[in-house]
Design a protein around this nucleic acid. Structure first.
Lengths: 339, 339
DNA sequence: CACACTAAGTAAATCGTTTAACTAACCATA
DNA sequence: TATGGTTAGTTAAACGATTTACTTAGTGTG
């Protein structure tokens, strides 16, 4: 069924059909409108999205670009992305866009594909500063960066208040009397979300006269089993930690496992705090105390920004931080060895 | 940059450019080919996907349709979908297709959107028999149904061997001496994957003279907190169960939580077995014994079927079942109260 | 009545590709 | 020297919409 066939059946021109389909009702009489609508109803005609996009130069496609390292790990083993995808899909669907998902090693690799599809807008999740620069140079459509840090002008970023998250995390451990504290996170440099959390974590510690030394930092891989090993390492380390701040819930679960293997009970012997507040937190044992990030709020904010950019055809400089909060459950306890 | 501009710059016709772009090299001389390739390189030209789709009548888009009930629950709270999406995305990307994701309440609602996009093929995840019928009536492009059961001809289904999974699950409990066994799963009728697992579970029990009575069946919602309540119910039930077979890992974790609340230790007082073998199984406490399904194998099989249908333009009747296997961890123990 | 204005509708150009049909030049063969 | 076949290339018609510019008829208004 094409617009031409509908027009023929209704005995009108294609322009009239197009006007009815697109709601330009002031251009057709009530009578012809009814006639056309009846034919559309009967034939089940739906306009061809490709043809429409070609003519209007807008695709009603929004792309979500997710980086991955090597294998599908970061994506595969992270329920976080399931929640993010669900929220973003719902957001764009409600505004009659389609969501196209793409995993990619370096974000720069994707721009030609995006422009070939005439994508109306893009969400980039977890892009590095280098990624952002590469994209900004070559991409012509609006983009919002989720979970990235960049002070560049003309870039729209949405994230959570990672610094505050790290701060809250440490503060909670300190408030429970802990002074010998380890920090566990994926490898990080001096930028990006983990770095922010680290800074917040350290600042909170420093306020109480506690220093996080290089040997107190434990790197966890994105590989599933690694966090268990890190748990072992923390248990066996020369310094006897009474608490550990972990920057991801999934890793925290693995670390608890590793600690247990070495005979250290959580929270009695050592406290553990996570980050993200994934749904699995309430299913773990002990239930995981963590820093909660509101994925839905993040998706909404990112969507709102993108829609504004698409609507106004203007670049937007923004750096929105969704607030975080502490969620107390059972994995952090009072420090008993306290002086 | 359009093909026309490239043709102009190179001093050739658009047809020649098109031939070079599409690798029809036998139609252009080596010299003009080089000339055109140089211009393409210089200008960074990429063909417009919309225009191409319009002309060729194929979109190189594959859609993944995921049903959800009410809110984004089934999707949101299920890391399973994160893994499935990752695998399918990779599969189609490797074959230069794009993956378009759509959540939908009833699968029938989506066909007009799919045909308007001229989608080359569709994966439906978890569609009901009714969904399948609705889709089959109206959808014109190839479709593969993942995690569905249908004996219809002309439908391609890919799932795991759910019956065997249920069977293995019960068998493992029985082998450990359990005779008082509960069954926990989402509400189910007399079709679909849960029904299959239930049948396998019951058959294994019956072979050992154990009957699963209606009161031994516990329904868990897709809502997060509900499984904990189900754990309470099982602990408090008049019949003292020594084991429970749960048809999803996530629910199993919640049930363990609920049992613990009532003072029942796993696996000492009661054994629990899950289903799916999500990555969180090794992070739970106790580590979850479960039935493993190979999501990657499922995605590959589904992809292969879809590609065959797209390539041969023929409908395919298939009902592929990926084998499952038991993964022993720590949540199932010997029945101590055994006679 | 002449003029301007509005309403309803159409014809045709356009978007950026692919591809079938055609042309022109060259070469080999009978 | 016709004839036929190949090679390299072009022209123009699709594909299915949107949209601008145009036509025609009807309606006030001075």
């Amino acid at each position: 069924m094409t617009i031409k066939q509908v027009a023929e059946k209704a005995g009108v021109s294609v322009a009239s059909v197009s006007n009815v389909v697109n709601g330009n009702y002031h251009k057709v009489s009530a009578e012809t409108r009814r006639k056309i609508e009846r034919i559309i109803e009967e034939t089940g005609y739906t306009p061809n999205a490709m043809a429409r996009s070609l003519a209007t130069q807008e695709s009603r496609i929004i792309s979500l670009v997710i980086p991955y390292i090597g294998e599908v790990f970061t994506f595969n083993y992270n329920p976080y992305y399931a929640e993010l995808i669900a929220e973003l899909e719902k957001y764009v669907r409600d505004r009659s866009y389609c969501l196209m998902i793409r995993c990619v090693e370096r974000c720069g690799d994707i721009v030609s594909m995006l422009s070939s599809w005439n994508v109306d807008g893009v969400f980039f999740a977890g892009a590095s500063a280098e990624d952002i620069r590469a994209v900004r140079r070559s991409l012509k459509c609006p983009a919002v960066f989720i979970d990235s840090y960049s002070e560049d002008v003309g870039v729209a970023c949405v994230g959570i208040d990672d610094y505050r998250g790290g701060y809250l995390s440490a503060q909670h451990l300190l408030n429970n009397g802990h002074r010998s504290i380890a920090f566990a996170a994926p490898q990080f440099g001096t930028e990006g979300v983990i770095w922010q959390r680290y800074c917040g974590f350290c600042d909170a510690c420093r306020e109480k006269g506690v220093e996080i030394a290089p040997e107190d930092i434990f790197a966890v891989d994105t590989i599933e089993s690694n966090s268990v090993v890190v748990g072992n390492d923390i248990a066996m380390s020369p310094k006897k930690y009474t608490a550990v701040g972990v920057m991801s819930d999934l890793s925290a679960c693995g670390i608890i496992q590793g600690l247990r293997q070495c005979g250290r009970a959580v929270p009695d012997d050592i406290s553990v705090i996570g980050f993200d507040n994934l749904s699995l937190c309430s299913f773990s044992y002990p239930k995981l105390t963590t820093v909660s990030q509101d994925i839905r709020a993040k998706a909404c904010k990112a969507g709102d920004l993108l829609m504004r950019m698409i609507g106004n055809k203007e670049e937007l400089t923004a750096f929105e931080k969704i607030p975080v909060k502490l969620v107390e459950r059972d994995s952090v306890g009072k420090n008993k060895q306290n002086t």
